[in-house]
Design a protein around this nucleic acid. Sequence first.
DNA 1: AAGCGACATGTTCGAATGAA
DNA 2: TTCATTCGAACATGTCGCTT
Length: 566
Amino acid sequence: MSIAEQAQKANDVSKAEILWALQAMNTHQSNSSQSAISTVFAAMFPDSAIAQKFSVGETKMRYLVKHGLAPYFKDLLLGYVKNVPWVLMFDESLNKATQQKQLDVMVRFWDPKKNLVVSRYWTSVFMGHATAADLMSAITSSVKQLPLCAVLQLSMDGPYVNWSLYENFELHMKDNHNIKLLNTGSCGLHQLHGAFMLAVKATDWRVADLLQALYTLMKNTPARREDYTDVTGSKVFPQKYCKHRWLDNGPALQRAIDVMGDMALYFFDKLQYAKLFDLIKQVLTLSHGQAAVERGFSVNKECLQDNMDPTSVTARRVVLDHIRSVGGVLRVDIDSGMKASCRMAYSRYKLELESKKGESEESKKRKLEEEKELDNQQKSLFMKMSETARMSYSLYEEENKAVESVASIRGLKTSTIFNHLSEAIKIGLPLDIDRLGISARIIDLITNVIRQPPINSDISRLTPIKDQLPDHVQFHHIKVVIAILQRRYGSPEGASVIPLGSADKSASVTMATTSRSSNNKSQKSSQGSQREASAKRKLPAWMVNSQSSPSSGPKKVKKKGSLFSK
DNA sequence: AAGCGACATGTTCGAATGAA
DNA sequence: TTCATTCGAACATGTCGCTT
């Protein structure tokens, strides 16, 4: 095969791949549904060299659309808008997938090729808050590439919502481009329709009556229609016209002209009205409500897949918008520019990945620093314990030894080790409570007994507490639970070591300790019980607010050792 | 041999599904 | 109704084959 032939073949393959990508976008196929397509094509068309070489998988589809087709179509659109007066349209909605406000920006202009006004999607901006100032900066930044000096109008959503934005934009246009925007109210076209209607009335030519008469004359009358065709040989009938939308009545009028012959031509001589037509073109360019943008939102929904990056959403819409605007996939002109853009897609994609990597490394660094900070905090807490408690804590938490092993290694009683660990909990060090063998039920049980009469949060003596509890609850259980509660609500003397967080915060500390220590296999199986435990540990509001129990009747004066008083 | 491009594999997330 | 599991999607990363 000659070099020229090889090049031609590569070109054909590129074309096939582009066509397929366009089709995939047009029918909202997911990127991941592309995974086996290449092999299927090769199997379907074994005699085709192109099919054998065709390859578009999930990854390639993604960057082909995002970095190849979308930028190319955007450039194309920019080329159209550059030479004509245009209208800037926008609207916002909630994007449920990204949970952000999605601001769609569209442009509207007269397309000389189609001889029609077209509304085209330009881009979307995603944001959280959307005040007038936010919208203003989002809009101006998104249309930077567009020729703002030719903006006719900023299309308005409603009569009241966005006026402050409108004023800002008007000011911006005046300051930066010395342009006075056309202000026709919130929906300008209705007024202009009305204006044309008045003008038509003012002629006293009874155009409306004529159109109405022509239309009703041939409507719902099969016999009359047949006669008409028999006599004239024509199957062209008067068109429907709309009383309220005179700018849209062009086709009806044209049809009237066609069917009325010389008399109608007398009124609508093309030469005489050529200039008027230019004006009408611009007037039609003015937006009519928000129909186009609003319709765009349903297109957004169609384009949306799971976990989609905002830029991917935008890219998909750009491609889809182009396909629809030219009237289908097969009508898209796949020229050398498009192919070149698609060839650059991969390198652009790589570049994006690199820059993202840089960002994530930076955030990783930050995270590491934060962790270090936390570590330092823990270290200083650790040093606040007695030396013997430090040893027990290290063996239990860092070397993952059971309480009994710690006791035997250190030649101490297990109750002593429990004392050490309670100390650690009290000052806020992370500790795997699950391994202590104290279930969420026991914690609940002890907490309730402490809270309610006759204990009433008095923790100065453990025996009365133990007396209220079942036999299987041990003293060391009570000690640990008291430590947890002290950590959560502060010790009675207010002698907590670090500033106290809310109940939620301390609960998260407990969770962090449990999930940290349970790893791999055990993590999955223990997840359920952990979740259950954390849910049960959740405290009622009255407890968080350090109020007495609702069932405890009139408030009693708390004793000195009272736990839940502040 | 080097670099590019495509794919396989892994991770994360949310929705759907199904069991308790 | 709640909760866990499964499934399907996008996105990230590493690897390998092809081209120059």
